[in-house]
Design a protein around this nucleic acid. Structure first.
Lengths: 238, 238
DNA sequence: CAATCTCAAGAGCACTGCTCTCGATTTGAT
DNA sequence: ATCAAATCGAGAGCAGTGCTCTTGAGATTG
């Protein structure tokens, strides 16, 4: 696969990019269900059937946008994590939380496409999962690093994970290596808690309730971190 | 407003119910975006334009379904709470968590309609919020009851809520009366954590990751309860 | 040069939400 | 009991959708 074989192939690649670009713009304004293949074609000055040469169906176009979205938020999370000192585990967690929220606020419709209700009749193909776990890998790395450094002091909260969680924990250790079951379980709670907050904020559940959302979110992220005892000794901010 | 004034009004009420009923059935199979006003009319043996006599637009039909959904899950949560001894605060919290998850699993498309991505162009009217907070009121009542009974022993996890949270806390105390700011903040984390878990499970984020979901969810609910120290002394199950 | 492959265009199908008009029926006041 | 007013179902129609198929022009390759 050389950089550009024939003129035709180059034109094809370019047009494919143009289609996904305008589709992403339409998605940003009209949402996933308002994404019209015909409207995209119209804006590009071509007829609707021509687009089908590039994407066999609307769902395939959606898949391309989903993969792009996962990679975009994944890269944002990786950048936020990399900008922190590797030993500052609480700071890394907070930075990553804010990266997720900031990205979601900047791309609400794309976030809804990734983490909201699945579009009916659409089944995510295999290619999406590789991109989907980029942020999860970052989360797991932070918790695993903190555990390895002996920086985790989970409070005695009571419950221990059920025995049946062992298999799931083993699978999750691919992302949070060398971490015992109970901490893996609490990491999942942190994980779902983070996205639960962002989803509630974006999907309107906080309307007329929580107004200073940035501050409340930051506190929420710190509370979640406390579940595994990932607390900074001197409480620094971003 | 007597039970049934004229024959016409009775027929109208009955047909309205029939429309929402079949619409809910269609919603359950095809999802919100697959809900077709024409298909509903077809199944009822009438022409599409006739339905517009009862619901001026598809969005109004959606609103009716949303209100019904909030009331349905709200009633389920209230029932689960009422079935428990009022003094068993951890048991009430767990029962309520499982009620939410069970309802969501039984009505996935309705759950997506209520807590998933908002349908583009649709703006929830005022009537929905009254029904939307029924479950929230139950949650708040449990935490408030436990606090009043002195049964809350929140672990020292570190962060204190920012000063700007005071206003939000004051507003939230309408639902969690007499509870101090820091516990209100953690209650919000419990709240978002609960729905975050259910949404992740329903929207496919746990695929190929967490398999024994009922057990993991139960543990997740107990961990969240631990955030405010709402732990049962003798760890009873449902 | 010629055969092949690629692609844009257009027509068409079945579907959607929604509007408007047109008669038929029911209602409520006279 | 009568009659105007309100209500309602049916139908046609508009603009839009995803998607399929055919057609003909152009680029690519032997």
């Amino acid at each position: 696969m050389s950089a550009s074989r024939t003129a035709r192939e180059r034109a094809r690649a370019e047009l494919t990019r143009e289609i996904t670009d305008t589709a992403r713009r339409h998605l940003a304004t009209a949402g996933a269900s308002g994404l019209s293949l015909r409207a995209v074609a119209r804006e590009l000055g071509m007829v609707s059937s021509a687009v089908y040469r590039y994407f066999p169906s609307r769902d395939d176009l959606l898949t391309a946008l989903i993969i792009d979205g996962y990679n975009d938020i994944g890269a944002a999370v990786e950048r936020a994590d990399a900008a922190r000192d590797r030993g500052d585990h609480p700071g890394r967690w907070l930075a990553v939380c804010h990266a997720v929220r900031d990205w979601a606020l900047a791309h609400p419709h794309e976030y809804a496409l990734l983490y909201g209700s699945p579009v009916p009749g659409y089944h995510a193909p295999r290619e999406t999962v590789a991109a989907a776990i980029r942020d999860t890998v970052v989360f797991g790395g932070i918790v695993a690093d903190a555990h390895r450094a002996g920086a985790l002091h989970p409070p005695d909260i009571g419950p221990t994970p059920p025995a049946s969680f062992g298999g799931d924990a083993e699978r999750l250790r691919e992302v949070i290596p060398e971490v015992p079951d109970d901490i893996v379980a609490r990491a999942v709670t942190m994980w779902t808690g983070l996205y639960g907050w962002v989803s509630f904020e974006l999907f309107g559940q906080f309307n007329n309730t929580i107004l200073d959302r940035a501050a409340a979110f930051d506190h929420n992220a710190r509370c979640l971190a406390g579940l595994v005892g990932l607390t900074s000794s001197h409480g620094d901010r971003d």
